[in-house]
Design a protein around this nucleic acid. Structure first.
Lengths: 344, 344
DNA sequence: GTGAAAGCGCTAACAT
DNA sequence: ATGTTAGCGCTTTCAC
């Protein structure tokens, strides 16, 4: 292994000078710099990150916690983080928190112990107090994505779930739907609560309340879409539009609707959330709300990088729009002849 | 920051003894172990990974290179790696190679420089000779996934693209299709070449050759599926079945077929490859070949972990089956009355 | 502008 | 079974 000593000998200078050239700080004469750079190239020297990190207490590594890298949603987010990090010459170390507080705590501590310079956190649970202490003690800057106001965060990036759900619900209402079912995610998620606020706001504009629609809480899984829709159809509620918790749930709902012989959107309209890859490929293509997750990851990483560089971001809270994507699964309500529209 | 010195003082022993307890090697009396563990707990001591890594030249970190973490396909693979790594108390540092040799080289070098104990490589290009040298010099064990025989690899995991494509093609042929189009990936990919071999083998069983079918090479993108299918339909080739390079290409092909007014599978059958999430949700649901990528990632990581533990895996080459998943997009060829089946 | 010296926190020979 | 010792490769005062 070639070390800084080899380079300094080869170039006929001290290690300190070589170090200055590598870190590109401090004064070095042009002549010596050339000499050193030549020696580095000839020897193929690459600094030892461990030694460097031990001494300087910096790793050039950013830590990221997401729910699960294996899921397309978070994978995109990680992709955004990586892009921004790489542009700044940093790497991203990813740990999955699996929406479990103990796992999330473990993930955070692991990243700190690996000397990550800063943390990007997408959590599903509040930060445990002992973990918050570790973050504070290590003075690791944290940027949260989509999270509640963690006391430890220096900045936060959010996707505007409220407005996204508001617009989605407005569309359903504008299309004449009044018997709407919301197959919601769990209330423990901030996203769910934000979306419910948006739904309520849209309902209020029409003089309605949340009690005027059908709401069931489940998880963000396709099978909940199937089961929830089956229960909904069995309930007797004269549903004309289903708002699914996300596109996976919508895919499940669509499956259940088809096997029940319901046409979408002629009999029942369907709204998703996320705009996954498959949203465009469902038949009919899914009207949904796009969550620009990769952008969220990128913006969060950029914020963190700024903070790491000692700058104070002019905006510590950034909200990213979640635009409504109109496709074919939502249609206008047409009263079939003889049907009593507002009965039931 | 609490160091090993603090622990040793608190427990009234030397640093070495503390170190032995942490690493769980060497002899330590039960009494002192208890004392030391108590001190560790009281002080909340967590070893400094940098110092540890510098000294021991091990990081407990596995490096993984995939084409792009942001894509669902590789995200699943990374998920598999993480699962296996975590079970062994290791972390995974991921770098994307973007199917570009320079990027792949950069990724590998970065992971080595970050002192990864071993590497999991899914590459799209041969390893550059200078990079192979770096791998050898650093003596970093490498396990490849889906790769050509890299000279540096200690073990390799592959998905059986040959048999997968063979079975897929057999199905199309068994259903009576003879005018088949293959919207292939590029020949620079090993996967593509393996699949073509499978296709040839299936054709040969029927006394046919690759020249009897329509082949176009493109990339694994939806838009290639659209454009390739449009060209195919315009070509006058009396196609009855399309075998798409992967499910994304199939999704594009389906779009193009629908806008051309073709019914699937009544007019034209469609076969995919990968079994992405959306394969089930296309209409009709896509008959395809499943690539168990998460399993590939997991198995590769397990192999590497074994090698890192000094064991020699009984099998240095593991092939994972790629089973045919029969759904609704492939149907039997029915000669329309008066149609000359084998003309054209 | 450059070099000498000290030491980051830990492990692993070696000695006892 | 435990302690002593000597660094791992690098950065960073501090002199000059």
């Amino acid at each position: 292994m070639v070390t800084i000593n080899d380079v300094s000998r080869r170039a006929g200078v001290s290690r300190s000078t070589v170090s200055r050239v590598i870190a590109d700080n401090g004064y070095v004469s042009e002549a010596k710099r050339k000499l050193i750079e030549a020696a580095i190239a000839e020897l193929g020297y690459r600094p030892n990150t461990m030694a460097r990190g031990l001494r300087s207490n910096r790793s050039n590594m950013i830590g990221g916690v997401v729910v699960d890298v294996a899921s397309p949603f978070y994978a995109q987010m990680v992709g955004g983080m990586q892009k921004a990090a790489r542009a700044a010459g940093k790497s991203v170390l990813i740990a999955s928190g699996y929406a479990d507080q103990a796992e999330e705590s473990r993930a955070i501590i692991e990243l700190i112990d690996r000397s990550c310079d800063g943390l990007l956190l997408y959590l599903e649970n509040p930060i445990r107090e002992d973990v918050a202490d570790i973050i504070r003690t290590s003075r690791t800057p944290v940027v949260t994505i989509g999270g509640d106001e963690y006391p430890v965060a220096r900045a936060a990036v959010r996707i505007d779930n409220f407005t996204g759900a508001l617009e989605a619900m407005r569309l359903l209402l504008a299309q004449g739907h009044r018997h709407i079912a919301y197959l919601s995610g769990g209330l423990m998620y901030r996203d769910t609560r934000d979306r419910l606020r948006g739904i309520r706001a849209a309902l209020q504009e029409k003089g309605l309340t949340i009690d005027d629609i059908y709401v069931e809480h489940g998880d963000f899984e396709e099978r909940f879409g199937v089961a929830g829709t089956e229960r909904l159809l069995a309930s007797g509620f004269p549903v004309t539009a289903i708002f699914a918790g996300d596109d996976d749930v919508a895919a499940g709902a669509l499956l259940a609707l088809k096997s029940a012989g319901k046409r979408v959107p002629e009999d029942i309209s369907l709204m998703g959330f996320d705009d996954n890859f498959h949203a465009r490929h469902l038949t009919p293509s899914l009207t949904t709300v796009r969550q620009p997750v990769d952008e969220a990851g990128r913006v969060a990483a950029q914020l963190l990088i700024k903070i790491l560089a000692g700058q104070v971001p002019e905006q510590a809270e950034i909200t990213i729009e979640a635009p409504l994507i109109r496709r074919d699964s939502v249609g206008a309500l047409v009263s079939p002849p003889g049907r009593k529209e507002f009965a039931g």
